[in-house]
Nucleic acid binder design. Structure first.
Length: 371
DNA sequence: AATGTGTGCAACCGCCCTACC
DNA sequence: GGGTAGGGCGGTTGCACACAT
């Protein structure tokens, strides 16, 4: 049995709000407030509207200091950066833009900003088509890929490249596979060597996105089962790693975590890599940064906290670890996540963790790293 | 002028989370 | 602890308008 509707659907008005309805709602709330009960509100005012509809109307249009349209370049950049970082969490994004509502930003993104930003890619692809180029990227099929692409564009812009998308065609800036995993892959696939460029990953593994999805569930399982003291947010692991990091140089190592007892191993694997490994005959995209995170004994990576590249984009570099909680309530204080499941981890060395539709982690380090 | 197509956006739907009983 | 109601949220729909054919 489904749950009861919040209001009598047959007797509520739907569709656009009239000026009279707006006036009634606005006047009442300004005088008496919402009373903490939206469902009861329309009856009190004499509006034939669903309480949820009243709430939406108030929050999106009637409450004071709401801005509509006219997004500035700065707001565009903020939206873009946050979208790359945390995906379509519009309410969180809206919280960073005073006067903007989540609905407004969502509409703006879907109808305009995305097209504006991806427009160049379309041109690029069309040009490649004309020129018969074979290096065309697959069409965007997930938010992870979309965000990866946007990130690359941003990098290109920052580097002053005329065509930021040329970054896609430059293997040296793309992540490297961890050597052990590379070896495994070569063995498993009878390959002589691995071309680990994203293009090749995508071409070799058409279900690229499935890898990511699977990777997510593995990470989740690892996280949930990892330790009885673990509250599911990765806090315990995070604390361990922070402790480990205190004793080590941030810049020369990553940390591996034993998959049995969840303890930090000291046999750390040095370097920044994107890993691709097998688990239960499924390939998983995995990754690690030099900041904190690592591979467990099965080769599975545990992503922990990374410095946010957004720090640099939005307010200057900051090399301190700052942790925000699962709900990003501390987002104004830094751009860190310690949550294995939220997967919004960035570091100052241009690593980026992408997130797909189902909270999947995919970490790239596009620096030509030398351990 | 009529019709088709694209675009922007307000509003709705349905799911999830949480507070409360 | 379990059930329920309300709030919050992201995804989607549908309408109005603009522009193209």
């Amino acid at each position: 049995m489904g749950r009861a509707p919040c209001c009598d659907k047959a007797n509520v008005k739907k569709g656009p709000w009239s000026p009279e309805e707006d006036t009634k709602l606005k006047a009442y709330i300004e005088k008496y407030g919402t009373g903490g009960n939206w469902i009861a509100l329309p009856q009190k005012i004499g509006l034939k509207r669903c309480g949820k509809s009243c709430r939406l109307r108030w929050l999106n249009y009637l409450r004071p200091n709401i801005k509509h349209g006219g997004f500035t370049e700065e707001e565009d950049n903020t939206i873009l950066s946050l979208y790359i970082s945390i995906g379509s969490r519009w309410s969180i994004i809206a919280a960073q833009l005073p006067g903007r509502t989540d609905n407004d930003i969502k509409n703006y993104w879907n109808t305009r900003l995305k097209k504006k930003l991806l427009g160049r890619r379309k041109q690029h692809q069309q040009q490649n088509c004309v020129n018969g180029s074979k290096d065309e990227l697959p069409s965007l099929s997930s938010s992870a890929l979309e965000r990866l692409q946007l990130h690359m564009q941003l990098q290109g812009q920052q580097q002053g490249l005329q065509n930021p998308l040329s970054l896609f065609n430059n293997p040296t800036i793309w992540p490297k596979l961890h050597p052990l995993i590379q070896e495994k892959l070569i063995q498993n696939n009878n390959l002589q060597s691995i071309d680990n460029s994203p293009q090749m990953m995508i071409q070799q593994y058409p279900n690229f996105v499935d890898f990511i999805h699977h990777s997510s569930s593995v990470l989740d399982n690892n996280n949930n089962n990892s330790n009885s003291n673990n509250n599911g947010t990765g806090m315990l692991i995070k604390e361990q790693v922070d402790q480990e990091l205190e004793n080590s140089s941030l810049n020369d190592r990553s940390t591996s975590i034993d998959d049995d007892d969840n303890k930090i191993n000291n046999d750390t694997i040095v370097g920044n890599y994107v890993g691709l490994t097998n688990n239960n005959s499924n390939n998983n995209i995995i990754g690690v940064s030099k900041a904190s995170g690592g591979y467990d004994s099965t080769g599975m990576q545990r992503v922990l906290s990374f410095q946010a590249e957004l720090n640099e984009l939005l307010g200057g570099a900051n090399n301190d670890h700052k942790v925000i909680n699962h709900d990003f309530e501390g987002i104004n204080n830094g751009w860190w996540s310690n949550d294995l499941n939220s997967n919004t981890c960035w570091d100052a060395n241009s690593s980026v963790v992408l997130q797909s539709e189902d909270d999947t982690t995919m970490l790239y380090d596009h620096q030509d790293y030398v351990a």
